[in-house]
């Protein structure tokens, strides 16, 4: 599961550009991962220039 770190994002849209399933919604200063659509490919995590996104274990989030 992809997690957005607090207060870090610059809303540049690089993650949106590479997302193969259009699972990231980005407005002027608001970013959301659409978890139902996300396939956890992690491309957005790699490509983010400032390390905003992180991949977390699904189990952790299910707790």
């Amino acid at each position: 599961m992809i997690h957005v770190k607090d207060n870090k994002c610059d809303f540049c849209g690089t993650c949106v550009a590479v997302c193969p399933v259009d699972a990231i919604e980005l407005r002027e200063a608001d970013i959301r991962i659409i978890h139902e659509t996300c396939i956890d490919c992690d491309i957005c995590v790699w490509v983010c220039p400032i390390d905003v996104l992180e991949s977390q274990d699904a189990q952790v989030s299910n707790d």
Binding site: A17, I43, V47, P49
Partner: peptide, 13 residues
């Protein structure tokens, strides 16, 4: 189909 491939993407700052 507009998604950028990783190999075609510059991660810039």
């Amino acid at each position: 189909r507009t998604a950028l491939k990783l190999s075609d993407t510059g991660s810039g700052y």
